[in-house]
Amino acid sequence: MFRSLSRIAPQLITLGAIVLLVTAFFPDFILIGYERERLVGPIIDVLKRGAPVALLAIGMTLVIATRGIDLSVGTVMAISGAIGAWAISSGLGLAPTLALAIGAGLLCGLWNGCLVAVIGIQPIVATLILMTSGRGIAQLITEGRILTFSDPSFAFFGSGTLFGMPFPAVLWVLLALVVTLLMRRTALGILVEAIGVNRSASALAGVNARVLLIAVYMAAGLCAAFAGIVATADIRGADANNTGLWLELDAILAVVIGGNSLLGGRFSIAASVIGAMIIQTIDTGILLAGFPSEYNLVIKAGLVLIILVVQSPNLAQSWRFVKDESRRRRERSYEARKELRS
């Protein structure tokens, strides 16, 4: 347990520092109230608004752990959201709607996984194909317009509450816990890391890398489908042009801020979702602080750069070198004074 906490300690410290920084500009940021049987406040809003990126980051973490990348998750969000809005507005009911939306995400993940694992296309190229074509598929489903619906049961996934918490926040927390337990309480986590470290060696050791890679990309598609459902249900409409637009970059950034290496291998779901909350806290804090909108991206980029530099392994190694060198100088000075006294 303590080992797991030490793994995410830098991310928790960073998140706490960002919260304190935002509170300095907006003192009411940490206030939480209770209205109409639900918790309200800027922090609760962060947990809700950060749900799509957190959901994407869960799947992206698994993909990156295998030394891959998935640039299509934002587009998969648009496809799943469009199918969900079309199904619910056609009167198919909640269960078929969810099945179709989730099935679309799994199918997109299967497509990416087959291109990477079976055909052997590089992950960045394979997922770029769906990224560029998938949004057109979503536009065909919505016929180029915002497809709205009024079904309250489907809208619950974006704006409903469960035990006083926004349901999107509950969803990403539960999914992160389930995936973490699945990866750490079974051999799947080790196998995923083995593929990321050395796919050829893992195959020689008996790991079915092809099937596992397909499963990982399908998991990313599943997470993207959940994110698409949340985003579509929140606005009660499917916007094929803007749903999930560029969120794949935020998802990758969340994984990196979480300290996971893009070179694959060891990974942490908890660190990635904390990274997603860091990004959303920065976004919310910039808006609450009243900075002009044209500066938002610049300020966000600067803060993220600082975070990544502080968390850089090279910086940590340099700091350890400085401390070791300082210790050696103190020891040499002590020995020199000891010789002079003798």
Rank of each mutant, 00 (worst) to 15 (best):
residue 113 G to D: 09
residue 85 A to T: 03
residue 147 L to A: 07
residue 152 P to C: 10
residue 151 D to T: 00
residue 68 G to N: 15
residue 107 L to W: 04
residue 55 L to A: 00
residue 147 L to D: 06
residue 74 G to L: 12
residue 111 W to S: 09
residue 103 G to C: 12
residue 119 I to W: 11
residue 94 L to K: 10
residue 53 V to P: 03
residue 182 L to E: 07
residue 108 C to N: 11
residue 134 G to K: 03
residue 112 N to W: 05
residue 127 T to D: 11
residue 66 T to N: 12
residue 110 L to G: 07
residue 107 L to K: 04
residue 65 A to W: 07
residue 145 R to P: 00
residue 181 L to R: 13
residue 138 A to L: 11
residue 102 I to M: 12
residue 83 I to H: 04
residue 112 N to I: 05
residue 133 S to C: 12
residue 80 S to P: 05
residue 86 W to K: 15
residue 56 L to Q: 08
residue 147 L to C: 00
residue 145 R to T: 14
residue 108 C to I: 13
residue 193 E to G: 04
residue 131 M to L: 15
residue 132 T to C: 10
residue 49 R to C: 01
residue 185 R to D: 13
residue 102 I to E: 12
residue 57 A to M: 03
residue 140 L to S: 07
residue 56 L to W: 07
residue 159 S to W: 00
residue 121 I to R: 00
residue 134 G to D: 06
residue 104 A to H: 08
residue 148 T to G: 01
residue 172 W to R: 03
residue 102 I to F: 08
residue 156 F to T: 06
residue 192 V to F: 08
residue 121 I to Y: 02
residue 133 S to V: 15
residue 86 W to Q: 11
residue 148 T to A: 03
residue 129 I to L: 15
residue 173 V to R: 08
residue 170 V to I: 14
residue 164 G to A: 14
residue 169 A to V: 05
residue 107 L to E: 03
residue 121 I to T: 11
residue 94 L to W: 11
residue 121 I to W: 03
residue 60 M to L: 15
residue 139 Q to P: 00
residue 124 I to W: 15
residue 164 G to H: 12
residue 89 S to F: 01
residue 88 I to C: 00
residue 192 V to P: 02
residue 193 E to V: 01
residue 81 G to W: 12
residue 75 T to M: 06
residue 50 G to Y: 04
residue 157 F to L: 14
residue 143 E to C: 04
residue 100 L to R: 13
residue 109 G to W: 07
residue 191 L to Y: 14
residue 65 A to M: 11
residue 177 L to N: 01
residue 80 S to N: 12
residue 182 L to V: 10
residue 89 S to A: 15
residue 156 F to M: 09
residue 86 W to G: 02
residue 98 L to D: 10
residue 164 G to Q: 12
residue 190 I to N: 09
residue 116 V to Q: 05
residue 151 D to I: 00
residue 126 A to H: 06
residue 122 Q to E: 12
residue 77 M to L: 13
residue 141 I to D: 08
residue 68 G to H: 07
residue 106 L to V: 11
residue 95 A to P: 00
residue 115 L to S: 02
residue 147 L to W: 05
residue 128 L to K: 08
residue 97 T to S: 13
